[in-house]
């Protein structure tokens, strides 16, 4: 059940990201200056951390989505769904281990 909760929570989070993303991108039609100002705010460390959370949510949602497709499609995967949960978290850990140091260096390194 917990993967179902994770899938829901990340799904809702990604939905709100997309909503905000559509709004900020459409600002360029209103006024390019306002657009620049809003996009500039995303360079602050607090948004850097939110970005890291966004990537985490998308990676989890994507790979758990593949797990759900596999479970729906093949009885083999259905019977091993618990193991697949750990594989999803394993892939998540590996990808985040690659992404986070680089991303956080950009956010806090000032480079």
């Amino acid at each position: 059940m917990w993967m179902w909760v994770v899938h829901r929570a990340t799904g809702v989070a990604i939905f709100f990201f997309l909503l905000v993303h559509v709004l900020d991108t459409s600002l360029v039609r209103v006024s390019p200056e306002a657009y620049n100002e809003v996009i500039g705010a995303y360079k602050t460390p607090i948004y850097g951390l939110i970005e890291a959370g966004l990537v985490a949510a998308i990676v989890l949602h994507a790979f758990n989505g593949l797990r759900i497709i596999a479970v729906d499609r093949w009885t083999w995967a259905l019977r091993r769904q618990r193991m697949l949960v750990w594989i999803v978290w394993g892939i998540f850990a590996v990808l985040m281990a690659g992404f986070l140091p680089r991303h956080l260096m950009h956010v806090f390194g000032g480079a």
């Binding site: 059940m1 729906d72 769904q81």
Partner: peptide, 9 residues
């Protein structure tokens, strides 16, 4: 059946 979200509970 389409309400099932394969939570496995």
């Amino acid at each position: 059946v389409w309400k099932c979200r394969t939570a496995f509970n």
